[in-house]
Structure formats: C-alpha cells, structure tokens
Write a protein that binds this DNA or RNA. Structure first.
Lengths: 216, 216
DNA sequence: CCCGAACCTGAACGGCGAGTCAAACGCGGC
DNA sequence: GCCGCGTTTGACTCGCCGTTCAGGTTCGGG
C-alpha cells in the first residue's frame, strides 16, 4: 500500500528502491574493477544514471563503498541462511557452508568471487574505523554460522562433544579463509576441488567425526 | 671495486644503495598509511628527499609500490630463514615459524604488521598481473618453508609419515593466514596468544605428532 | 682547474575525479 | 491546466597528485 506498482510497469528503471539498485551496482563494479579503481562514474554507468544521482543518494563516495561492501556480504549471508535452513542435518549444513565458500565452485551463486570483496573489506577495515566496525559484525556473523552448526550437530548427536564451539568457529573459519585466498589467487596449486576436500577433511578432524569413505 | 667507499664516510645519507633506502621507506609508509593512501610525497618525506628523486630511481609509482611490497616480504623471508637455520629440530623450527607469523607477538621482528602488507599484496595481485606474478613466487616460497620443515622432521623421525608434505604446507599455511587476519583485525576475539596456541594445535594434529602437555 | 656524469631539487604541468549546483523533468494533487 | 516537490541531469569547479623538466650540486678523473 505504500506504493502502487500498477503504473510503474511503464517506468522500467524506477524500482522500489533506487538506493539498493546503486548498492548492487557498486558491489558489482568493485568486484570487477577493485575498490581502488572504482570511480563514481563507473557505478553510475552500471546503473544507467548520471554521476550526480549517486551523490544524491549517498553523502560521499566513501560511505557508499562501505555500504556496498556490507550490502554484498549481507546478500551472501542471506543465501547461506536460506540454504542452511533447508537442511536439518548438521553434517550436510557444514558441507553446504563449505561449498558456498569455495570460490567458483557453484556458478549459480556468488558471481565469481564473494571473496574478492572480503579482501577489500579487510584492507579497508585496517584503516577505516567505520569499516572496521562493520567488519566486526560481518566477521562474527560468519564465525557464528559455523559455531552454530557445530552446536546443532552436537544436539542431534551427529558430532561428538569436544573443543569449544566458538573456538571451532574461529578455527574452521580460518582454514576456509586461508584456503579461499589460495583458490582466489589461482596459481593452479589449489583448485576449488582441493579446497573442498581439504576443508572437509580439516573440519571433520577438528570437530572429531569421520567422513564416510565414499568421497570419490 | 665497482664503488669505493673510502670517501662516502663524509656523505651521511648516501648509502650504498639509495634504491633500497626508498624501498624500505615505501614499505614503511604503506604499512602506516595503506597502499591506497600512499603518495609519492609521503615516501619522499620518509626518506628526507624530494619527490623528483623517487621517480629518478623508479620509473613509476606503480612499479615502486610493487617492488616495495616484494622487498618487504623478502625481508621477512630472510629473517625467517635465518631463524630456522639456527635450529636443527623440526619441531622447534615449526614453532619458530609460527611465532614469527603471529602479528604483534615478537616486538623485535616485523614492525607492527608484516601481514598488513600481505593483505595489500592480495588485493593488488587480484588485478595487476605484475603483482600476481610476484605473489606467486612469494606464496610458493612461504608454503615451501612449511613443507620443508615437515620433510625435515620426517627425516629426523620427529614427525610421522602421513599426508603429502606440500599439501600440509598449503593447509598449515592456510590456517596461519586465516588466523593472522583475525588477529590483525583485532576485535579481541582472537589474541596473538590464541593464534599461537591454535596454530600449534592444528599443525600438530595435521602433521600427526602430539604436543607435550607442558603448554601452560 | 675544468669538465662531464651522476645525483638531486622543487616548481610547473596536466589530467583526473569527487563533489556542487542550477536547471530541467515528471508526476500527483488541487 | 497549473503548482510544487522529489528526482535527475550534466556541466562546472576545485584540489590533488603523478610525472616532467630545467636547472643546480657534488664529485671523481684528467
């Protein structure tokens, strides 16, 4: 009721929220060009609007960039949550989380590289307090996703009791982060399949369950 | 014989290699300000020279930055090699490598953050083929350091046979990378001591030896 | 003592890109 | 039909910074 959509069928580019459209475009441009090479004009072109409009919706380029990075990460998190909710088994949830984390494994998700944006977030968070604050939230959410799966698996009896679940979140998260970087950089030493296999191995070792032998 | 040093005692700031001086200064500035915020003038000031001189020794800012990043990493690698050579025991070598990798653990080494430069390298390597090439070298060298320790430990009988040593280099390297990022970002969730402990635990688990209980 | 080469300076140039602004647009209400 | 407001435009400003350059300094060798 807030806005009728009846007439907007004729106005193709005015969606409900122009802001969001800009954020999505910005995320895409950052992914393509890199944060440092991203100009306001690039984002404007990706939206099909003028440069002036970008700064009509965002008070400065810097703020827009920070918002775009967190926006993209939110999108990833939403996809992840949706996927996890589909699956009651903790082991399959863990598997799904790992699959979604491997750069370039599932073409339908995560354009090319969710991770390229993570690296940009890291760099920026090192100096920009604004971004550091955001990073803290995103980072905790990411590790908590893992820890929650561990806790859930222990409730269902799929996983044994063992180290602190939050610690496991940190450790498994670290392995995934580190491997993702290797895959991203892609010198052929670590393929997506390698990452998938190693992540499963290491996390099963750390959590303390055994992978079924049928991994061929 | 290429250059006499007899008279240079009176020329205080003309060391043997001005180029190297600039590289060191550049690395420091990048560490402080971040790659994106580093201006040629910052580097010149850090050296106490004019901006013109910087481009007298380096054909462009971009090339200088790439060289500075690899230079800094070389310095780290040299320190690491020196430390490892001191110690014949593979377990102690591994321990030392981990210690040197923890951001902020050993004040005497690695200014504040060797790792801040790594993150900059990653970002740049994602787009700049020049940097990607360099990164490949640095990255392989880093993982090989770990794999070599594993191999050495197996020769001396300290470590059991097990997974491929190069794979372990990748896996342990990934854990260290991932944890280092967490420590770097520093939200208090992962302290340097945490990283130290976890790195030891995980690598002993992966390699397959047991840490002595005296870890208090 | 002079010359040339290497080293160094800092002012000047030029382009680029963030942010501004006055004007236009279009749409819903009166 | 007209008004007014939210939206959009694109030309303009302005400061910044990489790079160039003409000249200065130092130093060693002849």
């Amino acid at each position: 009721m807030a806005k009728e959509r009846a007439k907007t069928s004729k106005a193709p580019r005015i969606t409900k929220d122009r802001r969001q459209e800009i954020l999505a475009a910005a995320a895409q441009v950052i992914t393509d060009r890199g944060l440092a090479e991203t100009r306001i004009q690039d984002i404007a072109e990706a939206c099909g609007v003028s440069t002036g409009l970008i700064l009509y919706y965002f008070e400065s380029k810097d703020r827009l960039l920070v918002e775009a990075l967190t926006y993209a990460n939110d999108q990833f998190y939403l996809r992840l949550s949706r996927e996890l909710r589909k699956n009651p088994s903790a082991r399959e949830q863990l598997d799904r989380l790992i699959e979604l984390s491997v750069p370039g494994l599932l073409p339908e998700f995560s354009f090319l590289d969710e991770w390229a944006l993570w690296v940009e977030i890291w760099v920026r968070a090192l100096r920009d307090p604004e971004m550091a604050k955001e990073h803290e939230v995103l980072n905790r959410r990411w590790r908590r996703s893992i820890a929650d799966i561990v806790r859930h698996g222990r409730e269902t009896g799929e996983f044994p009791q063992g180290r602190d679940a939050d610690d496991l979140g940190i450790q498994i998260g670290a392995v995934i982060d580190g491997l993702a970087i290797q895959v991203l950089m892609d010198h052929g030493d670590v393929s997506p399949e390698d990452m998938l296999r190693v992540s499963r191995e290491v996390s099963s070792t750390l959590i303390g369950f055994s992978l079924e032998p049928a991994s061929a």
